[in-house]
Simulated assay, not measured.
Amino acid sequence: MTDKTDFKRTLDAYQAARGRFRVLDVPDTQYLMVDGHGDPNTAPAFTAAVETLYPVAYKLKFASKRDLGRDYVVPPLEGLWWAEDMASFTAARDKSRWDWTLMIMVPEWIDQDMFAAAVEEAGARNRPSRLDDTRLETLSEGRCVQTLHVGSFDDEAEVLARLHHEFVPGNGLRMAGRHHEIYLSDFRRVAPEKQRTILRQPVTIAAATSA
């Protein structure tokens, strides 16, 4: 019987503490990805993306266990979020202007051939509507700042404002990539006030200004 890896426990990138901003270096990571736009609460494409990613993720898990003898817990849903005006995430909180990429992490030993086979298998019956939009891609984030948020997504704005406008510039950094969320709780089943979400922001060293 093979051991089952739980990446939430074994990878440092899935560790975060409430009320603390932590700087860490995130290694290049493979993900299943589906892109979209608009309010996640009302955009049909958002629900369709979730309902597409999970079948493919589980097909890959089963193939890994069956063919490679390497079993693992399917990692949590994640999302990249951005907009032309980043105030849409803090002061304005205008969800209709958001772009997003939903993702599920895939172990590094999964290759494109296994992905293609999983997509084909997932589409054999009850084909997910966004299956043709799904891709396997490596995300390179590098240096990041992250924290754990406990509560509803709408209560993130204050935490993000402190991250963007206080911690990042206060530590000689600047934002360098897309806002990243890791949903440790299943938001379809957990009450909003109990949801646990890692909030991550890629950063780089701010350029020095001349006196």
Rank of each mutant, 00 (worst) to 15 (best):
E108P: 04
R143C: 11
G123F: 12
A63N: 08
E141K: 08
N41H: 13
R70G: 05
E141G: 02
D111N: 15
D186A: 03
A124P: 07
M114Y: 12
A17P: 09
R18A: 15
T204N: 08
V190N: 08
Q195F: 06
L148W: 11
M1T: 15
L160I: 11
H149I: 04
P202D: 05
G36E: 04
H164S: 07
E158R: 13
T90M: 05
P40F: 08
G36P: 01
M86G: 01
A157N: 05
M86C: 04
W98H: 03
D12Y: 06
I104T: 01
F62G: 05
F167Q: 01
W81L: 04
A161N: 07
V73S: 06
H179I: 01
W109L: 11
E78P: 02
Y72K: 01
V74H: 09
E158F: 12
F62Q: 11
E137K: 14
Q15K: 15
L184C: 02
N171F: 11
D3T: 09
V73K: 06
C144W: 03
E193L: 11
V23R: 13
L11K: 08
A17Q: 14
I205K: 15
L148Y: 11
E193G: 10
R130D: 06
T204K: 10
D25Q: 13
G170F: 02
R178L: 08
D67W: 07
H149Q: 10
L184P: 01
L184G: 02
H37E: 05
E181P: 01
K194W: 11
P107H: 05
A208V: 13
